[in-house]
């Protein structure tokens, strides 16, 4: 097995272990120490960095040339954004629930038959590379908003129904989660806007269908922000929108991966 693939297998193992640790703590009703889950996520992230570094060095460019690499890159961007937002807003448990999504993305990547093969070296140019990289980082932000949205919906339901205090105690405060959803959607939309702008700077524009799909994703998240700004969206609606909205980036990744 090549070292980059081995690094990715190890990262996937760390993400699975991080999620397993949290589920075990929650199911036993025990206090969840945040540092083991954080360390496991950090270890997984380090392995992802090693993979991207090796691949990037071998390819001579950002490693987002195959579906296998795309999925890995989105997973890496999501974990990176967690470290930037989760720790800043003390949403430590968000990390624990980021781990399963990272695990799913990584496993899907590793299951692709071409995951072992190294694509041919090519230099697509600055703008195409920027467009792809920024779009995938934005997807990472939307993925994290989806996780925060799901956690919000669980916590909101438990608090409304006056039950499950054992679980309520372990989940972050609802207000922090709704703020995280908003900030992550805003961050993702800004980054995706930059990615779209980069697409229009490319010497050879991407196909119309592909651009239309990216615009559709952008429109959904921009509409959420606009509605919230002008009309005031309830945190529950925003959480549903963030959770279901991520289906579109997932579909676009699925289309790319199936190619």
């Amino acid at each position: 097995m090549s070292p980059d693939r081995a690094a990715l297998f190890t990262a996937t193992g760390f993400f699975l272990a991080g999620f397993g640790y949290t589920v075990r703590s929650l199911s036993r009703g025990k206090p969840t120490a945040t540092w083991p889950a954080f360390l496991l996520l950090l270890a997984g992230f380090s392995c992802q960095c090693a993979f991207l570094l090796w691949r990037g060095r071998d390819l001579g460019r950002c490693p987002i040339t195959t579906p296998f690499e795309l999925l890995t890159f989105v997973s890496w961007a999501m974990v990176l954004l967690y470290f930037l937002t989760g720790t800043a807003y003390r949403l430590s448990l968000l990390g624990a629930f980021t781990a399963p999504l990272a695990f799913v993305l990584q496993s899907t990547a590793l299951l692709k038959p071409e995951s072992a093969a190294l694509p041919a070296r090519s230099r697509p140019g600055f703008w195409p590379e920027m467009h792809a990289t920024l779009s995938l980082i934005a997807y990472g932000a939307f993925a994290l908003a989806c996780v925060a949205g799901i956690l919000y919906l669980i916590q909101d339901r438990l608090l409304k129904r006056h039950r499950g205090m054992q679980v309520v105690r372990h989940l972050p405060p609802v207000h922090h989660l709704s703020q995280a959803v908003h900030r992550l959607i805003l961050t993702g939309t800004i980054i995706l806007s930059s990615g779209i702008l980069a697409a229009y700077q490319m010497p050879n524009r991407p196909p119309v269908g592909k651009l239309a799909f990216v615009w559709a994703i952008w429109s959904i998240y921009a509409a959420i922000l606009a509605y919230d700004h002008w009309r005031g969206m309830s945190p529950r609606k925003a959480a549903w929108a963030a959770s279901l909205g991520f289906l579109l980036p997932i579909i676009s990744l699925w289309v790319v991966v199936r190619r």
Binding site: G29, M165, V168, L171, P173, H175, H176
Partner: peptide, 23 residues
């Protein structure tokens, strides 16, 4: 053990819930 976990009075339950709502 869990001997000190959770809140046992109305006042402390209210505080615990407020912290789970607002942080």
């Amino acid at each position: 053990t869990d001997i000190q976990r959770g809140s046992t009075s109305v006042g402390s339950v209210a505080v615990e819930l407020a912290e789970k709502i607002f942080g």
